[in-house]
Nucleic acid binder design. Structure first.
Lengths: 144, 144
DNA sequence: CGGAATCCGGGTGGATACTG
DNA sequence: CAGTATCCACCCGGATTCCG
């Protein structure tokens, strides 16, 4: 179907190669990346996943402090979706004062590992990125 | 600052290790992943980046067909942001009928490579994911 | 072909207050 | 501490129309 990008009429001066697999196997998904995005799309999900991966079992409060600018509402909502999608596991100790923590399922753990390169990329290109940001924020007072 | 998750009071039965770097170096960013997310947050950006990476120079129409369910408005908007952030380069051949194509900058190319594991993850866990989706879509007619 | 412009509904997501 | 509930502004994003 429409995904056969395998006919480079022009040799394309630029290497078209860094992607080995994008095979549409199941209907409803266009490619592997699409599958992944359906699961981690959400303003805070990657960060949540990542923090829990780093800390192991993580309490609600810790998580909130880690992500910092997230609101309770959002944090809970995203956590519930992650739980529904089988990526995190919620444990309620039924104590008072309440104690709850979140951990990753095996599936979640594997996804968190796939997230590592993104984190590394950000660390490596942080300077470059903030330079670009500064530029466009300067010349573009309103907008974006 | 609040990011010192380096005190696991409990030894945490689960391996807290898959993440080597999340060093807050610049103010405004909490960690590398945060940097990356500021740049690829946007419903279609990862897919766009990925398709352009695969195809090399890609024409507007190709891109639209590849992402498929995206509207013109969204596609253009996301492309402009990617361009402003120095990830893609737009080339207008000033012909008639119009011809325009998009390619990746070196920065964009490096980011696309960091995206590869996500694509692989999706491919590998596609069955698992769609099973989970089916389950919650069945028990949850409305919502989400 | 490759957009730009406009309209507009619904969902996202922040702030605040409250609860067990 | 770990949420829940409600209100509400904003902007995301789809549909449509027009342009060079």
């Amino acid at each position: 179907m429409t995904l056969d990008r395998s006919d480079p009429t022009q040799p394309s001066a630029q290497a078209p190669s860094p992607a080995p697999n994008c095979t549409p196997t199941l209907p409803g998904f266009t490619c592997g990346l699409d599958v992944t995005l359906r699961v981690i799309s959400g303003k805070w999900k990657p960060l949540i996943l990542y923090f829990v991966a780093q800390g192991g079992r993580t309490r609600y409060g810790e998580l909130k402090r880690a992500v910092r600018t997230v609101s309770d509402k959002m944090l809970i909502q995203q956590l519930k979706e992650l739980e529904a999608d089988g990526l995190v596991k919620r444990t309620d100790y039924k104590e008072v004062p309440p104690r709850v923590d979140y951990s990753l399922t095996p599936l979640g753990r594997s996804l968190a590992e796939a997230l590592v390169p993104l984190c590394s990329w950000g660390t490596e290109h942080m300077a470059e990125v903030s330079r670009v940001f500064a530029q466009r924020d300067a010349s573009n007072v309103k907008g974006r």
